[in-house]
Nucleic acid binder design. Sequence first.
DNA 1: ATTTTATTTTACCGTTTGGTTATATAACTT
DNA 2: AAGTTATATAACCAAACGGTAAAATAAAAT
Lengths: 93, 93
Amino acid sequence: MEPNRRRILDLLRVRDRTVGEIAEHFSLSQPAISKHLRVLREAGLVEVHKHAQQHRYHLRAEPLAEVDHWLEPYRQFWSEKLDALEQYLDEEE
Amino acid sequence: MEPNRRRILDLLRVRDRTVGEIAEHFSLSQPAISKHLRVLREAGLVEVHKHAQQHRYHLRAEPLAEVDHWLEPYRQFWSEKLDALEQYLDEEE
DNA sequence: ATTTTATTTTACCGTTTGGTTATATAACTT
DNA sequence: AAGTTATATAACCAAACGGTAAAATAAAAT
């Protein structure tokens, strides 16, 4: 995923935020942030609640579960390496 | 990640494969596969071992651990939902 | 030596991406 | 009503992307 978008999600993980609050954390223009938020919205990763002019964005992490599931069978690959290391260290002593 | 690339990794998870073997599973041209393999190679996700003309590709899943770690703090978001569902179901009986 | 097989690289092309500035929209403030 | 504030959309652009077909490379087979 695009790194700026990942950072936006990281911010929303802490708490809901308005567009302006998000934009403060970047050196991008506000419209650039709005564009990223649109992409995230269309991916179902955030939702908006409008209070007057302020649009407050909220994290909806569920779609990430898909990535998590894809990753699932790969996890053994790096845990195998760790196991091998552990075993090696055990044999060392 | 690009879906074809994800599929290539899925194939390599099962066993090492040559370029031709991989290409069989796609309706893309063989050079297209080579290009994807190059991207994966540069990302450290695969490595090649050359036996004569055959280039055999091998999965190196470690860089995926980075994604896995990024995902880590998000997991609670969907497990929270599951917990809420469980609780609801418990109260039902 | 020539041809065949396996793969990569190059040159090209249309589409998508991530950014910008300028403009539009909408609600609050004065 | 006029101005300000918050956000979104439009128009534009260069770079990256994902594909192709054609050419280059390299080893094996004949």
